[in-house]
């Protein structure tokens, strides 16, 4: 039943995501994409457990590599998105 319950979450989240993203204007599509990219680094959460739990050398190596890759995705993704969004200015609100 666990899998069914997770599948339920998956389906609802996808519909929610489509609703949310459909409302993002074209002008923000690049930051949206890099921001979404950063969110996909959520795999980091799974990588942490693999890296820290004592389940053999191989798992530790795989987990640590996964932590490094996912962290690049998370840190780089959020920072570059912030850098881009800081540049978006309205006409009056500019300098």
């Amino acid at each position: 039943m666990e899998a069914i319950y997770l599948l339920f979450i998956l389906v609802l989240s996808i519909f929610l995501g489509i609703e949310l993203i459909g409302k993002v204007p074209a002008t923000l599509h690049t930051p949206l994409m890099s921001g979404a990219n950063a969110i996909s680094g959520i795999t980091l959460v799974g990588a942490l457990v693999a890296s820290g739990a004592d389940r053999g050398e191989l798992t530790t190596i795989l987990g640590t590599a996964a932590v490094a890759f996912a962290t690049i995705n998370v840190v780089g993704g959020y920072m570059v998105t912030d850098r881009m969004l800081a540049m978006f200015k309205k006409k009056e609100g500019g300098k």
């Binding site: 666990e2 969110i39 799974g46 457990v49």
Partner: peptide, 25 residues
């Protein structure tokens, strides 16, 4: 998919949001 593999719901929610955003774009 990784969320399903390790039974973690936040991976599924966040992953699905990103998946949906990619589909829309």
């Amino acid at each position: 998919a990784a969320g399903f593999a390790i039974n973690n719901n936040i991976l599924i929610v966040a992953g699905a949001l990103v998946g949906a955003s990619g589909i829309v774009l």
